[in-house]
Every structure is written in structure tokens, then in C-alpha cells.
Amino acid sequence: MPNERLRGAISARGLTTQRCAELIGVDPKTVERWITRDRVPHRAHRVAATDLLGVDETYLWPSVVDDLRVVSAGRAEMVEFYPSRSAVPLELWRSLIHQARESVDVLVYAGLFLPELHDITHLGERARQGCRVRVLLADPNGTGVRRRGEEEGFGIGLAHRVLLSLRYYEPILAIPGVQLRLHDTTLYASVFRVDETMLVNTHVYGSTAAHNPVLHLRRVPGGRVVDHYLTSFERVWAQAKPTTDIDAVIAAFDGR
């Protein structure tokens, strides 16, 4: 049976099988077999294809879920489980920032605890040393933060927490390598990624993030859990609004 999901994902990206093959680094006939014969690519090619198409590999090739090696690698990615964010050792948050070399990615609504816990200027220092820093905060004027605030019982208070976070990050926004964007997305988890390590703070309806469980993950070869959350981050990042003028954001909020 042909893999219509793969065919559709390639078409949705405006690509041909020829161009798709070139970008992935395989023969065009190989991509054709992936489609017409529903062949499952090798792990490296699956990763390249999903990165290119912006689609999770289990959507394109559902059978990989049953691959014992994938299951085993996914379990190996779990370093620790914390029943709540408040149970995560404070030193872990601090050490991750200090150890960052390549990438720091933050996806939250407000995430105010992070700048209150750790001097944000250290993120700027990491950026000056070549580390890419990307921060996604909720748009305080958006519907997403308003809905989440109502669910948590804080109402407009959550938007005010976003504004405070924005002020914390403001001093480092002019540093090359630091980017901040505002999203209006429903988050099912907050994501904190530093190089190969990730902390995923799950969201529970009606409960604040500090009281919800945290997964401490680290990427291992063959695993897909970290990549699964990174794909989610990239999707939110792609549709979020770049922001450098914090005063303008606050003025828009005050003028509602």
C-alpha cells in the first residue's frame, strides 16, 4: 500500500520527490520506494526526512513505534522523573545554563521562575560565546495566555507574569545569538532544552506548572523522545512573532 502520508507531506512542502531526495541525500528512486512500496527508511534518513518535512516520524511511518530498538532507546532517554517542578533540584537548572555550549531553547507561558532563579545575564554570556539562545514566551495580549490563566485560576495574573519575564530578558535581547518570540499557542508542556539535555514540564488542566511533573531527558542515539519535543518547539517557533521592543508589547497590553 502506498505511503500517502509521506506523499502528502512532500507535496505540502511544495517539493518534488527529486528535490526531496536531493535534500535528504538519497537517490530519487529510494524516495519513490518509500512512497510506492511503503518502505521504512533507515533511522538517519527518517530523521532527515522528518526535519525537512516538519512531520513526526510516527505519523509518516507508524510501524517504527513497534521497533524494539526505538522503544529501548526511548526509555534510555529518561534520566529522571520529578513529581513536580518544585522537586527539580535548583542546582540542576543552574548547572544546565552554565554548561550550555550550542543551544538553549525555552518554551513557556511565563516561566518567571527561571529568571528569578538564575541571573539571565548568564544566558547572554553563553550567547557571546557562540551558544544560540531562543526564548518563547506567551503573547500577553493573546488568547492562549488568557485561557491558561483562567484554567489556573489566576486570570489576567498570568499575563502580568509574562510581562515581568519580558523585563528580565530585555537586557540581553541586543546580544547576537539571543532571540525572543511571542507565541499564542496552547502548550501541553513547557520545554527547557540545553544542548542534548531537556526538561519537560507537563501541563495539567487547572494546575500551575510548578505543581506538575517534570521529565528529565537526554538524547541518545536511536531515541526519539527528545526529538519529538524539539519538533513541537520548532513548530511553535516558526509561527511566533519576533520581539525586541518590550515597551511596545507592554504598551499594547496596557492599552487594551
Rank of each mutant, 00 (worst) to 15 (best):
Leu158Phe: 05
Ala159Val: 06
Ala159Gly: 03
Ala159Glu: 00
His160Met: 09
Arg161Asn: 06
Arg161Tyr: 03
Leu163Ala: 02
Leu164Thr: 07
Ser165Met: 02
Leu166Tyr: 02
Leu166Gln: 07
Arg167Pro: 03
Tyr168Pro: 01
Tyr169Gln: 00
Tyr169Lys: 01
Glu170Asp: 05
Glu170His: 10
Pro171Asn: 11
Ile172Thr: 06
Leu173Phe: 07
Leu173Tyr: 08
Leu173Cys: 05
Leu173His: 04
Ala174Ser: 14
Ala174Pro: 01
Ala174Trp: 08
Ala174Ile: 07
Ala174Val: 09
Ala174Phe: 06
Ile175Val: 13
Pro176Trp: 05
Pro176Ala: 11
Gly177Met: 04
Gly177Phe: 08
Gly177Arg: 03
Val178Ala: 02
Gln179Arg: 12
Leu180His: 02
Leu182Thr: 00
His183Tyr: 05
His183Ser: 01
Thr185His: 11
Thr186Pro: 02
Thr186Gln: 12
Leu187Ser: 01
Leu187Pro: 00
Tyr188Asp: 12
Tyr188Thr: 11
Tyr188Phe: 11
Ala189Asp: 03
Ala189Glu: 00
Ala189Lys: 01
Ser190Ala: 13
Val191Trp: 01
Val191Leu: 12
Val191His: 04
Phe192Leu: 09
Phe192Lys: 01
Phe192Pro: 00
Arg193Glu: 04
Val194His: 02
Asp195Tyr: 10
Asp195Ser: 11
Asp195Asn: 12
Glu196Gln: 13
Glu196Pro: 03
Glu196Trp: 09
Thr197Ile: 06
Thr197Pro: 05
Leu199Ser: 05
Val200Glu: 00
Val200Arg: 00
Val200Pro: 00
Val200Cys: 02
Val200Met: 03
Asn201Thr: 09
Asn201Gln: 13
Thr202Asn: 06
Thr202Ala: 14
Thr202Arg: 11
His203Ile: 02
His203Ser: 03
His203Gln: 09
Val204Asn: 03
Val204Pro: 01
Tyr205Asp: 08
Tyr205Glu: 13
Gly206Cys: 05
Ser207Val: 14
Ser207Asn: 07
Thr208Tyr: 05
Ala209Lys: 00
Ala209Gly: 12
Ala210Tyr: 05
Ala210His: 13
Ala210Met: 12
His211Ala: 13
Asn212Val: 06
Asn212Asp: 14
Pro213Asn: 05
Pro213Tyr: 07
Leu215Thr: 04
Leu215Phe: 13
Leu215Gln: 04
Leu217Val: 07
Leu217Lys: 04
Leu217Gly: 02
Arg218Pro: 06
Arg219Glu: 14
Arg219Leu: 12
Arg219Lys: 14
Val220Leu: 03
Pro221Tyr: 05
Pro221Leu: 08
Pro221His: 08
Pro221Arg: 08
Gly222Asp: 06
Gly222Phe: 04
Gly223Arg: 01
Gly223Met: 05
Gly223Asp: 04
Gly223Cys: 07
Arg224Ala: 11
Asp227Val: 10
Asp227Leu: 15
His228Gly: 13
Tyr229Leu: 10
Thr231Gly: 15
Ser232Cys: 10
Phe233Thr: 11
Glu234Met: 13
Arg235Thr: 14
Ala238Glu: 14
Ala238Arg: 15
Gln239Met: 15
Gln239His: 15
Gln239Leu: 13
Pro242Tyr: 08
Thr243Arg: 09
Thr243Ile: 13
Thr243Val: 15
Thr244Lys: 13
Asp245Gly: 09
Ile246Pro: 04
Ile246Asn: 06
Asp247Leu: 12
Asp247Lys: 15
Asp247Thr: 14
Ala248Ile: 07
Val249Glu: 04
Val249Tyr: 07
Ile250Phe: 06
Ala251Asp: 15
Asp254Thr: 12
Asp254Trp: 10
